[in-house]
Design a protein around this nucleic acid. Structure first.
Lengths: 143, 143
DNA sequence: TCTCGAGATTAGACAGAGTCCAATTCTTAT
DNA sequence: ATAAGAATTGGACTCTGTCTAATCTCGAGA
């Protein structure tokens, strides 16, 4: 039940537009991420892609995710000390992280303003800014 | 060559003040972090503590760091997908991360203002906000 | 001083994420 | 159809961090 927008044909086109040769495995991995628009870890993606029959090896999942990162098709989100999450949303946004459930939610960045940051050291340029708001249910004990 | 401020005696007192029984190993681990005021990973701390003679096991290093975290003597910084850094600075501050060298620098939070964040979901409270500015040398290629 | 027990430490086995490699299979241009 | 290059694969491997059962430490009380 693909939305037209994330049909495998359109995904293949998107991959090509990013300089990525659209192989079967790569299209399936892209489909897993973009049809859900969720933050998934490598092992979640592997589980999705191999749901019916085993199709894609662990090495390929990692190769492909790193390729997508390089080509800026996806972003990585580092909030959980145990694993990296991959984020199909590459528009400017920040994250809210529920430390109890591990759930990660997007915060649109267009309304957010950050002021008072010190100047960058000479010769350095900004690659990006990550903001993570760590939240928890009000009745959940601090420790 | 301890500064008086981070003498082992004073560190023992600090541990006690945080409800931590100041054992030999715990004092050495605290000393590694506080005498440097740097962001160290668990394996760096283990190397420092065991520099002369092997004194402290891996299990104890991890046990102790997690105890310090729980007692809010230190913070953890999650910016590197491969390992956690431990930060002896618990005052409000953010981080600048040099993606080339892996070097992590503090940014004092008192001057920083963030506006335009959406309201929290009902029943949730903020545990904290992390800001990481990813930088790199200007001549370092994007990929 | 001696003993006891709770708490701390330990070595090493273990688990999970991610990388590497050499062999195989697939694509694609010709 | 073919050959070269690209992609994929299983499995071994590394690394960070956890767990466990055994041992050690040290202070309180006799």
């Amino acid at each position: 039940m693909d939305s037209m927008q994330y049909s495998r044909d359109n995904l293949a086109e998107t991959l090509r537009a990013h300089g990525i040769n659209p192989t079967h495995q790569r299209i399936e991995i892209a489909h897993a991420l973009f049809s859900r628009l969720e933050h998934l870890s490598a092992d979640q993606i592997m589980a999705i892609v191999n749901e019916r029959h085993s199709e894609t090896s662990k090495a390929t999942v990692y190769n492909t995710l790193n390729l997508f990162l390089e080509k800026k098709l996806i972003r990585e989100v580092i909030v959980d000390p145990n694993k990296v999450f991959y984020d199909p949303n590459t528009s400017a946004h920040y994250h809210m992280y529920d430390v109890e459930s591990g759930k990660l939610t997007d915060i649109d960045a267009t309304a957010v303003r950050v002021s008072g940051l010190p100047p960058l050291p000479a010769g350095m340029v900004t690659e990006g800014m990550d903001i993570v708001i760590r939240v928890r249910p009000a009745d959940y004990p601090t420790q």
